[in-house]
């Protein structure tokens, strides 16, 4: 891949345990392009959140490193904004206070009115105009997460890191916020890395979907290239001829292959630096004859 805007290079995370050390994951490689939307799917305990925290700089890998825009990650940075699952708003600050806190952290020399105007722009962007002076406690779950998104976007980061941002929301609110995030990312060309449990969410938002096997010793098993067009609409997405091919492929992975992946690779080998890229539903070459049942096109990077 020519453009390695983000490059995860052989990271591992181990925790000390009575039996020596437990490896959550090791030798994990992944590259992301600028402006790309990547979703990670895997069962709980596979280390997805740890990967995200390492990308955020909140956690350190036991081995390996992550390079963002030519620089190795040394710690948290304003270039990488995090949208927390629990929204993590400061309850003693108003909506605009929360966003302004981030803005004034980014641009320390700005005047109060400058900070305010900038914060207001992003509050308007996420559709919270009119609620600026409310406290987080007065907001619904969806509105809180909107504030979290506004706070993350307001610092104009190079990447947005999202840890199951919508999992605590009801289905309707989740749908609206997915639309918003998609619109904003497309408009601003934002690079995004998101963890999710929701297969439909991943298919709707992501350009590529990363599948991880169960932990401990989790592996980045496969990268699914989303075959749906970039200009997809929520209302029609499930009618796309390739939609169910992608969906079934991911669900098959979650239900069976995420557990039995070790046996699968024992048979055909596994190179963590060049994991299989799959375009479900698209048959590319004769090499796919290996997996005719899955109707999946497997190619090497």
């Amino acid at each position: 891949m020519a453009d390695r805007f983000i490059s995860i290079e052989g990271i591992a995370r181990r925790y000390p345990s009575p039996a020596g050390a437990t490896t959550v994951f090791e030798d994990l490689w992944l590259a992301m392009r600028r402006g790309e939307f990547v979703c990670v799917i895997g069962h709980s305990g596979c280390g997805k959140t740890t990967v995200l925290n390492i990308l955020a700089g909140l956690d350190r890998p036991s081995e390996g490193s992550v390079i963002v825009d030519g620089q190795a990650i040394e710690g948290p940075s304003l270039d990488r904004a995090v949208i927390f699952q629990s929204h993590a708003l400061l309850p003693w600050r108003s909506v605009i206070g929360n966003v302004a806190y981030a803005v004034s952290s980014r641009w320390r020399k700005w005047s109060a009115s400058q900070v305010r105007a900038h914060a207001q722009r992003f509050i308007d962007l996420v559709g919270l105009a009119g609620a600026e002076h409310k406290r987080p406690a007065e907001l619904s779950g969806g509105m809180k997460q909107r504030v979290g998104i506004a706070r993350a976007l307001a610092i104009e980061p190079k990447i947005m890191l999202m840890d199951e941002p919508f999992s605590a929301l009801d289905a309707l609110t989740r749908g609206t916020l997915q639309d918003e995030v998609r619109r904003i990312c497309l408009e601003t060309g934002q690079t995004a890395f998101m963890i999710t449990h929701d297969v439909d969410e991943a298919i709707y938002l992501a350009d590529r979907i990363v599948l991880m096997t169960n932990g401990p010793d989790a592996k980045l098993a496969e990268i699914v290239e989303n075959p749906l067009p970039k200009s997809r609409a929520r209302a029609e997405i499930h009618r796309h001829p390739l939609y169910y091919a992608v969906r079934n492929h991911i669900i098959d992975f979650l239900v069976t292959r995420s557990k039995s992946f070790a046996e699968e690779i024992a048979a055909k080998g596994f190179d963590p630096r060049n994991v299989a890229v799959v375009r479900p539903g698209i048959i590319e070459s004769a090499a796919d004859a290996e997996h005719p049942a899955r109707l999946a096109g497997v190619s090497r990077l």
């Binding site: 955020a56 700089g57 909140l58 304003l78 904004a81 995090v82 629990s86 400061l90 806190y101 952290s105």
Partner: peptide, 24 residues
């Protein structure tokens, strides 16, 4: 999570003490 917010915003020790820890 509030401390993590401060860390991702690269807030310094003193500012963190007064704007995050003290109010919390």
């Amino acid at each position: 999570e509030w401390l993590d917010v401060a860390r991702t915003l690269e807030v310094g020790v003193l500012r963190r003490a007064f704007t995050i820890i003290l109010p919390a």
